[in-house]
Nucleic acid binder design. Structure first.
Length: 478
RNA sequence: GGCGCCGUACCCAAGUGGUAAGGGAGCAGUCUGCAAAACUGCGAUGCAGCGGUUCGAACCCGCUCGGCGCCUCCA
């Protein structure tokens, strides 16, 4: 039974979707005016894994993740560069897909854009006006927070408390400083859509309400995003949506913790961020491995906790993955004794049970990884005793199957260099290395250890590690 | 001022009432011509500190210390 921590209640709750075997899930995506950083990656990855696990558990998942493609920052960026907003948003939506693709984050079922839902946004705003929950000032429309008594339920804030410390909002026309824009009139030169209140564009929060209701219905199961969205974004979404429909909005609210640098939140304003592509560019490893290292690193901490990023954290992820891929390499080797199944079946069941228990407990990926580490140890032990090809393939398949939920262990052995640096054996083809290794083994057969050690040294200097097998042949890795 | 999060071994990190998972690094050993990998063993009498509740607390309550987040765009 899957349990999820619901921000709304502040505790873990058994997860039961509205419709059996179907989960409707909406996650706030990004505003597309710049490249994504690691914080965006974490959020995307967390919900990617939740989605994968729900599917693993037998649910069909309707997963909606939006792009905010109309926004002040986009307009600013477009003006700076003297191009249209669409030029900016198209570019960064593409970049988003490229970056997330490298991380193995699957595209959502539906990825709606705000600009393509103006009719829904306007209609929703009209409904709020009709119900007296919103008011108009010239060409702007505001949601009146005081008219929605449950305001603050998600973020556990009271209006009074907030007003005390809220920075002064310059717009004195608003009835309350906490009232927020549903529709903003546009200045000349800004993107604008016709509306009953004149040409303008939507406020930030309304788009998510409009798009989630449009694609998932008034009430749906999961709504997610980063912790920083709890207030005001999600609080406002709830007010708007429930206010307009009179129905419950999202039932489970899930929020991921921040990526930090030296204990501080990674953010644009602090300038302490790493973009995803920057990490890939700087990595000494090929993209598929770097992607898996990042995934491992990001999933080795529970999704709600803070996560400190450093060079060392990636190196540790790499080391941990080496252990798995070293095992996979040995599982893939054609030779081997053919003793049957001396307990691996049980080990695999134990791993799967542990994995599921961990994931069921609020998507505890670190614990799930520990279960996989357990199977790695068991498999290594039994491999020493000798396993049949068939059993070895089943073990590899088990890792592939459970790993797929986390997006790990999908690479083939030859795609993952389990060496110590990313540039092992640079300049040498596999065939050239094979030839040298063969020459070394010839020397070993002649007991010419001076010559064989010389070759080992030569290759080691290039970052190539040779491992001798009991049968006199050797495997090597870059 | 309000709301909230984090503080577990050298490093990363689970555990939220029943007596400290897992990984990495390190050390020792087995195996090996030598290595590597693998395996085995070692490693917090204690979970920021101090009180309290309890038969029993890293986990609950209170206070203190240290770090951070949100209340303004933010994953």
């Amino acid at each position: 039974m899957l349990k999820l921590y619901n921000t709304l209640s502040g505790r873990k709750e058994p997860f039961e979707p509205l419709t059996p075997k179907l989960v409707k899930m909406y996650v706030c995506g990004v505003t597309v005016y710049d490249y994504c950083h690691l914080g965006h990656a974490r959020s995307a990855l967390v919900f990617d894994v939740i989605r994968r696990y729900l599917e693993y558990a037998g649910y069909r998942v309707e997963f909606v993740k939006n792009f905010t493609d109309v926004d002040d920052k986009i307009i600013k960026r477009a003006n700076e560069q003297g191009v249209s907003c669409e030029t900016i948003t198209t570019k960064f939506i593409q970049a988003y897909h490229d970056d997330m693709g490298k991380l193995g984050v699957r595209p959502a079922s539906i990825e709606p854009k705000a600009t393509e839902h103006m009719a829904e946004i306007i209609r929703l705003t009209e409904r709020l006006m009709e119900k007296g929950l919103a008011y108009r000032i010239d060409g702007d429309v505001y949601f009146e927070v005081a008219k929605y008594p449950a305001y603050g339920r998600l973020s556990k804030r009271r209006l009074d408390d907030m007003q005390a410390g809220a920075r002064v909002d310059v717009d004195e026309r608003k009835r309350s400083p906490m009232d927020f824009a549903l529709w903003k009139s546009s200045k000349p030169g800004e993107p604008a859509w016709d509306s009953p209140w004149g040409p303008g564009r939507p406020g930030w929060h309304i788009e998510c309400s409009a798009m989630s209701i449009r694609h998932l219905g008034d009430t749906f199961d999961i709504h997610g995003g980063g912790m920083d969205l709890i207030f005001p974004h999600h609080e406002n979404e709830i007010a708007q949506s429930c206010g307009a429909t009179g129905q419950e909005f999202a039932r489970y609210w899930i929020h991921n913790g921040f990526v930090q640098i030296n204990q501080e939140k990674m953010s644009k304003s602090l300038g302490n961020f790493f973009t995803i592509r920057e990490i890939f560019e700087k990595s000494e490893w090929p993209a598929p491995e770097t992607g898996e290292m990042l995934r491992y690193f990001l999933l080795a901490t529970h999704y709600r906790g803070p996560l400190d990023f450093s060079d060392q954290s990636l190196a540790e992820a790499k080391n941990a993955l080496n252990g798995f891929y070293d095992l996979f390499a040995r599982l893939d080797e054609p030779a081997g004794s053919s003793s049957g199944d001396p307990g691996l079946g049980q080990a695999m069941e134990r791993c799967q049970a542990g994995f599921q228990a961990a994931m069921d407990d609020d998507v505890n990926t670190p614990m799930a990884i520990a279960a996989l580490q357990g199977l790695r140890g068991d498999a290594n032990k039994l491999l020493e005793a000798g396993l049949s090809l068939d059993v070895r393939m089943r073990v590899r398949q088990a890792f592939r199957g459970l790993g797929a939920v986390l997006g790990l262990f999908q690479l083939n052995t030859w795609q993952f260099s389990a060496g110590l640096s990313g540039h092992g054996g640079r300049g040498l083809t596999d065939e050239e290395i094979d030839a040298k290794v063969r020459a070394r083994n010839d020397a070993r057969r002649r007991k010419d250890f001076k010559a064989s050690d010389e070759i080992r040294r030569e290759l080691a200097a290039l970052g190539i590690i040779i491992e001798d097998k009991p049968d006199g042949t050797s495997r090597w890795k870059r």
